[in-house]
């Protein structure tokens, strides 16, 4: 008995077990047998590419995705999305809460998912045509309607709080540029300083990631999803570590908060009268 409530999909199909229509006997991903074929023959990043693109990657594409995943895996404990996860971990929240907090904070426009979303649109529109970037980088969002996202405050892919392009960003750029299919990344490496002058800010890791995801033929939706997911391992590891270390070892910012609108102390209820 099929149901009118079934989902339509090009990604996934299942054949049921003979004794249970709700249990899969086999599952196919874009036609490939997941547990009979992919599991034993494919790498994690080949499977990941298949899920998002619908086709097997070639060796270069799988390598580019894997190297990008290494570069993004841990933004480190100073980064906002990782700090969000650590705040969940140190308080003993459910593990999902740490990752949900990390995703929400890491979704933003400063180094986060939405910055990559905007930048992917620019890569699609401007590509490697250097003449188009000076007009688009300072004004990257063409739909100016009121929105849940605020107007972009800096050139996407560049760090408005940076002084110069940090060494790890340059290392990632150089490493990815060596992979043959990373055409956009190589162009970015060649034109980095020109683009930094236009952006009035140094290149950031989100900028390199977007270029690599463009080389992997990901659209903006796939790119953001991958960018969000690939940064979670570090968030998880740091959240677990802070859970173990405990709240006494975790910074509490109380003294750092300086109130500028303070009505001052009021008289408290009398503790003795309340029997306390």
């Amino acid at each position: 008995m099929s149901s009118k409530y079934g989902y339509r999909t090009k990604v996934w199909s299942e054949e049921p077990e003979a004794d249970n229509p709700f249990a899969a006997h086999s599952a196919l991903c874009y036609g490939y047998d997941v547990y009979g074929d992919i599991l034993t023959k494919a790498s994690w990043f080949e499977y990941l590419y298949l899920l998002f693109r619908g086709e097997k990657p070639n060796a270069d594409q799988a390598q580019l995705l894997e190297k990008l995943a290494i570069a993004l895996a841990n933004p480190g404990p100073r980064e906002a999305s990782v700090r969000a996860a650590m705040n969940g971990g140190v308080g003993g929240c459910p593990h999902a809460a740490s990752l949900m907090a990390s995703l929400a904070v890491g979704a933003g426009q400063y180094g986060g998912g939405h910055e990559v979303y905007i930048l992917m649109q620019l890569w699609r529109e401007c590509g490697t045509d250097m003449e188009q970037w000076p007009a688009r980088l300072p004004s990257p969002v063409s739909d100016t309607r009121e929105d849940i996202w605020r107007p972009m405050e800096h050139a996407p892919g560049f760090d408005p709080n940076g002084e110069s392009c940090p060494k790890p960003v340059r290392q990632v750029l150089e490493a990815l540029a060596e992979i043959p299919c990373a055409i956009t990344v190589r162009w970015l490496a060649q034109h980095r300083q020109e683009l930094e002058t236009i952006a009035d800010a140094p290149l950031s890791l989100s900028g390199v990631a977007a270029a690599a995801l463009h080389d992997l033929a990901m659209n903006e939706h796939a790119a953001v999803m991958l960018y969000l997911m690939l940064r979670l391992p570090g968030a998880a590891a740091h959240a677990i570590e802070q859970r173990d270390l405990g709240w006494k070892m975790f910074p509490f910012y109380g003294d750092h908060i300086k109130l500028t609108d303070d009505p001052g102390p009021f008289e408290l209820p009398n503790a003795e009268e309340l029997g306390l």
Binding site: M1, S2, S3, Y5, G6, Y7, R8, T9, K10, V11, W12, S13, E14, E15, P16, P21, F22, A23, A24, H25, L28, Y30, G31, Y32, D33, D37, I38, K41, A42, G54, K56
Partner: peptide
């Protein structure tokens, strides 16, 4: 909201080998 395997309405590529 249980869903049977056959309720997945698949329209992707035919079965193929990795």
């Amino acid at each position: 909201f249980p869903m049977r395997c056959e309720s997945i309405q698949y329209s992707g590529p035919e079965r193929r080998s990795w």
